[in-house]
Design a binder for these strands. Structure first.
Lengths: 335, 335
DNA sequence: TATTTATCCGGTAACGTTTACATTTCTTTT
DNA sequence: AAAAGAAATGTAAACGTTACCGGATAAATA
C-alpha cells in the first residue's frame, strides 16, 4: 500500500541505503543524488515509516501525558505548556484522559510503555500509580505534574498545595470567617490532602478549630460542588465561607448559591483554586488561588528532558515547587 | 535495556514463537506452557514492544486527532466523544493542537501519516488542508469534524452551520433587532462562512439588509471578542445585538460590555455558538446555539471506522449533519 | 603517472515482533 | 503395538528502516 524506501530506491536506481542517507541528510551522499532522490520522494508522495525507524533507532520522539480531565480548563492549560515545550524539543505528546479513573490511569501507563514513549508526564489522581511506577522508575523518565507524590523517588513539578490551602484559609480567617467549609477533591488526591493540611495549619495558627462537619469530598466536578453546597445549605449548618477544590467546583458552588438565593459574597464567601480563564469573567470575579498552569507544563517537560538527555539515568530526584498566588476578586467579603 | 520476547523465551526454555503465541493467546499452545510463560512475563515485568508489533502487523490501533484549540472548552468536549468511542473500539487517540495555525496543521498531518495512524479526524481551521489531503485521501481514512469542507471527497460530521447562523439571526430579528453585529471567526473558517450565510439568509427572508460594517472577523478567542466589541462601541455605531463566533468570543463580548457599563440584554443582546459549560452559569446565562459536542466526536469515530473496517476503501462519501439547537437563556431581549 | 586519500555508494545485518511452514510430540484408532 | 491424525512447538522469513563495513570511483598528493 504505502511506498517504502525500497520502492524509492528502484525509482532512483540506487540502493535503499542511499535513499536512507538522502532522507536523513547524511554527509555520506553527494548533493546531486540527494536532490534526485528527494524530488522523487516528493513526486510520489513518499512518507517515511516512523514505526520502522523507531524500531531500529529505538526512539519515538514522543512523550506520554496522562491527565484526569481535559474538560476542566486547568488541564488543557497545563497541556499547552507541555505541548509547546515538547515541540521546541522536536517531541510530540500523546495525550491520555483518564476521567479520574485509576484503572484507566494504569491501563494508559501500560499503553504508553508498550508504545515506548520516551517519558511520561502524569497528573495523577492519587498515589496508587506510584507503586506501579516503582517497577518502571529505572526504565523510563517519569514526572508528576500538579501534585507531589508521597514518594521520594519520583520527579515532580507542582504548586505548593499546602501553602495554597493555607493562603486561602488564612485569607478567609483574616476576613473574620470561622465557619469555613472545605469542599475538597477525592480523598485519595494528593493536592487535596495537601490543601487540607494547609487549611488546618491556618486554623491552628489562628488558634481556632475548624468545623470537621464542613470538610467534604467531591469528585472535582462542577456538579458535585453544586450538590454538596445545596446539601450544606439545606442542613442549616450554613458556613460563612466555602473553599472549593478547584475553580470548576467553585463555579458549581456559586451556581447552587445563586439558585437558592444566597448572596455572594454577602452571605457566603467563596474561594477556588487554579484561576481558570472563566474565573475572571466580570460576572463571576471568583477569588481564587492561582497556579502557573503553563509553567507547570513547561517545567515538567524541562525536567523530563534532564533525564531523557541523560540516557534515562537520573542522579537526583528533581522537585520543583511553584508558588501559588492569591487572586483577590469579588467573591470574598469581610464578615 | 527492555526485555524482549527472546529473553522471555530463554527464561521459559521455549522458542520465541511460542512466547508470541502465549502473549496473543493463540489456540496453538497448551494451557500449561502458556501459563508458565505468562507468569514469567509478569515476574520480570515484560512489556511487549508495540513498535515492533506495529511493523509486522501493519497496524497501530491509533487514530490521529487534530484540533485548533484545546483551551476552548468546545474542543475537549468533542475530544471526549472521540476518545470514548475510540476506546470502545480498542483504539487510542493521538491528540494534536494547532492553535489555529495552518502550518502546524499541515505538519501534524505529516507527523500522523508517518506514524501510520489508521485514520485522521480533523477539526480544520480552513479548507487549505483539503488540497493537501487530496493526495492521501485514498491512502488513509479522513473525517472532518465540526465543519464541512467544500470538497465532495471528504467524509465529515458537522453541525449545520448555515442553519445555526440562520436560527441565531432569525431569533434576533424576530425579537425586533435590525442592527445586528456578527463577530465571526477567521475569514477562512468554513463554519464561520456557513454561519455568515445563514446570517444573510435570515436577513433576506425578513426583507431587511444587514449592516455590512457590523460584520467582523475574530480569531475565535475571548480577547478578540472583547477588543472588537470595545471598538464597535467606541465607534458609536452601536448594534442592538451581537452574534459571536462562539461562546468563548461571546464571553469576551460580555466582558467588554460589562466594563463599559453596557447592560445585557437591555442595551445589547448577545448570542453565541456551541453551548460550552460556562454558558449556563447562572451569572452568565448566555443564549446560544448549541452543538452536540460529544455526539460530534462519537459519530466522527463511527464514520471513520466504516472506512477502517472496509480496509481503507470507501464507497461513498459520508456526510453527517447534526442539527443546532437554540438555547434561550438571558442575554437576548425584545427590543 | 602512480599512489594515497577522500567521497560516495552498495550490501547486509540488525531492531522485536508475527506468521507460515516444518517438525516434533502426544493421542487416538486399528 | 503400529499407523494415522491432532496438537504443540520450533525455524525462519518477513515488516521498513538505520548503521556498519567494505568496495569503487573520484580527487588530491607525490
Amino acid at each position: 500500500m504505502n511506498l517504502t524506501i525500497k520502492d524509492i530506491a528502484k525509482l532512483a536506481n540506487v540502493s535503499y541505503a542511499t535513499v536512507s542517507r538522502a532522507l536523513n541528510d547524511s554527509k555520506e551522499i553527494s548533493e546531486k543524488t540527494k536532490q534526485k532522490i528527494l524530488t522523487i520522494c516528493k513526486e510520489v508522495n513518499y512518507s517515511p515509516n516512523a514505526i520502522a525507524r523507531g524500531l531500529v533507532k529505538n526512539t519515538t520522539h514522543t512523550i506520554g501525558l496522562i491527565m484526569p480531565d481535559i474538560s476542566n480548563p486547568f488541564f488543557p492549560e497545563v497541556a499547552l505548556g507541555i505541548e509547546g515545550e515538547a515541540a521546541r524539543m522536536d517531541y510530540n505528546v500523546f495525550l491520555c484522559n483518564t476521567n479520574y479513573n485509576i484503572k484507566r490511569e494504569l491501563s494508559y501507563i501500560n499503553l504508553l510503555l508498550e508504545r515506548r514513549v520516551e517519558g511520561i508526564i502524569i497528573s495523577s489522581v492519587s498515589d496508587e500509580t506510584i507503586n506501579y511506577f516503582n517497577k518502571y522508575i529505572d526504565h523510563i523518565p517519569i514526572v508528576y505534574v500538579g501534585s507531589n507524590p508521597k514518594n521520594d523517588k519520583c520527579d515532580y513539578v507542582a504548586t505548593d498545595n499546602i501553602k495554597a490551602g493555607y493562603i486561602a484559609t488564612d485569607y478567609l480567617i483574616k476576613l473574620g470567617h470561622k465557619k469555613i467549609a472545605f469542599i475538597g477533591g477525592t480523598s485519595v488526591s494528593n493536592s487535596h490532602c495537601d490543601r487540607i493540611k494547609g487549611f488546618k495549619k491556618a486554623f491552628q495558627e489562628h488558634n481556632i478549630l475548624p468545623d470537621i462537619e464542613l470538610i467534604r469530598n467531591s469528585d472535582f466536578k462542577r456538579k458535585s460542588g453544586y450538590q454538596i453546597t445545596k446539601f450544606l445549605i439545606k442542613e442549616k449548618n450554613i458556613p460563612t465561607a466555602i473553599i472549593a477544590a478547584n475553580d470548576v467546583v467553585a463555579l458549581g458552588v456559586i451556581e447552587a448559591c445563586d439558585e437558592m438565593g444566597i448572596l455572594i459574597p454577602d452571605t457566603i464567601s467563596i474561594i477556588g483554586f487554579d484561576d481558570i480563564p472563566y474565573a475572571s469573567l466580570p460576572k463571576i470575579m471568583l477569588t481564587t488561588i492561582a497556579q502557573s498552569k503553563y509553567d507547570l507544563g513547561k517545567i515538567a517537560v524541562e525536567t523530563i528532558f534532564k533525564t531523557i538527555n541523560n540516557k534515562g539515568k537520573k542522579n537526583t530526584v528533581i522537585k520543583k515547587i511553584l508558588d501559588p498566588e492569591l487572586i483577590i476578586r469579588k467573591t470574598c467579603k469581610h464578615l
